[in-house]
Design a protein around this nucleic acid. Structure first.
Lengths: 259, 259
DNA sequence: CACTATAGCTGGTCA
DNA sequence: TGACCAGGTATAGTG
């Protein structure tokens, strides 16, 4: 790791020009103002901030509070660094969409340059798609003797998450939601009505979710629909760490504009 | 700014215990694994990361790529630091929702502690009625050669904030909003239509606001209406800069569990 | 305090 | 490529 406290602008400029456009994590702490221009406009007055350039060229400007960055650029195509009598300017441009973040440093208190290695990737247990798959694999999660007919079945009202038949051969429309609300109920009702038109007979509608509110449950039951609660832990047996860290990195070569 | 390279776990623990629960920006670079448990579950395998604790207690764990953090906690109620033979553990808990981020450090390459000052957090005080008055007093805020005909003019659709004539004697309907949205646009449009019925000829509609979103602006322009941005500082002579950067900070005293 | 709507949303999936 | 939807969404505004 390379680290300089209170560098001169010349030192800083040299370091930034060397490392900004390469696969290094670069951090600059200092007093700066920031402008953004592109999809919107924003101007950030002078303040002490932390600038973070990541190894895939992502740029973040963090202030002293708030979980989210004050300013950012998810992907930068070209960096540009200039020094004049007033300080150091860093410009991060990307095309498509055309936008630029400009950072004017008045003071720089710290610069660090490092190459971080992260072999792991995060996988979250409990996404909607996971539940779909789990139900398809093990329909008994929802109900005994349930047979999946089709997944993502299309109807005029939209796509049904899981379409099945129960142990009395009745058709069952299953809608999966992580955070069910009134709209979810209405949507399920529409699906059931579509299936009634297509197949006739008694059609069941089941809302599958890890949680439920009293209000929505009542709303659901008033419409003759059912609710099955699933525990995430039961549905997803194990989550695995997947190595995605190299994705796209080998292609990363933002141009560096020397002037 | 306090800074230690390659601290021992004991040194690190001491520093973290001292500053994590206070209004300091704390940064830890090192090799770690991270667990999250709460609204969902996630596990992040060992990797080199940057942990950032901000002055409002927000916690971020950044990996070497991606603009977004690998793991985070927007607000932390209590921090807990422990050292054992395997390394250093940092736990950040919050209630409502009940969730926890656990960071296990195997190696720590850098710790920095600092207090950042961001003067740009200054916000402005000003109410809608203030802008009305200011426009009545000085119509040129909105446009040159504007003559106010009437304030709070009544129409069947409601009261028009300011009713005026421009330098070509066209009638101008001015609607003032602090936070304009779609409804504001529709309201202005209704006023313009009312005035068209009453006076005929070309009627202009101007929305005056200190800020504007892209969507609303587009919506506005599609209807042939105009937008004038006003700076509170320009409009209200005695506007006061209110320091909101401390908002909630004085109350910020996450408990520190000494164990 | 809860609910609602937006975001320079970002990120995914699927027609 | 674009439309549509989810997110540990976060955040701001309103009742």
């Amino acid at each position: 790791m390379e680290l300089i406290e209170n560098p001169s602008f010349e030192q800083a400029s040299q370091l930034l020009k060397e490392y900004l456009s390469r696969e290094y994590t670069v951090q600059v702490n200092g007093l700066c103002t920031v402008n953004y221009r592109g999809r919107a406009k924003s101007k950030l007055d002078r303040g002490e901030r932390i600038l973070l350039k990541k190894q895939d060229s992502a740029l973040l400007v963090h202030g002293p509070d708030n979980y989210q960055p004050k300013n950012w650029q998810p992907e930068v195509d070209s960096f540009k660094v200039e020094v004049d009598e007033e300080g150091l300017v860093l410009r991060a441009v990307r095309r498509n969409p055309d936008e630029m973040v400009e950072v004017f440093f008045d003071e720089i208190s710290l610069i660090t340059v490092d190459q971080l290695v992260d072999k792991s990737e995060l996988k979250i247990a409990g996404h909607e798609v996971d539940i779909h798959e789990a139900i398809e694999d093990e329909p008994e999660i929802v109900e005994e003797d349930l047979k999946v007919v089709e997944r993502e079945k299309e109807t005029p009202a939209g796509f049904i998450d899981v379409f099945a038949r129960d142990n009395e051969d009745r058709y069952v429309v299953i809608e999966v939601k992580r955070n069910p609300d009134y709209n979810t109920v209405l949507q399920l009702q529409r699906y059931v009505e579509e299936i009634e038109e297509e197949f006739h007979g008694e059609i069941r509608g089941i809302l599958v979710a890890p949680k439920m509110t009293e209000k929505v449950l009542k709303y659901l039951e008033e419409r003759g629909l059912e609710f099955v609660e699933v525990e995430m832990a039961d549905v997803i047996p194990s989550y695995e760490a997947v190595d995605n860290s190299q994705k796209g990195l080998s292609d990363f070569k933002p141009s560096y504009d020397l002037n």
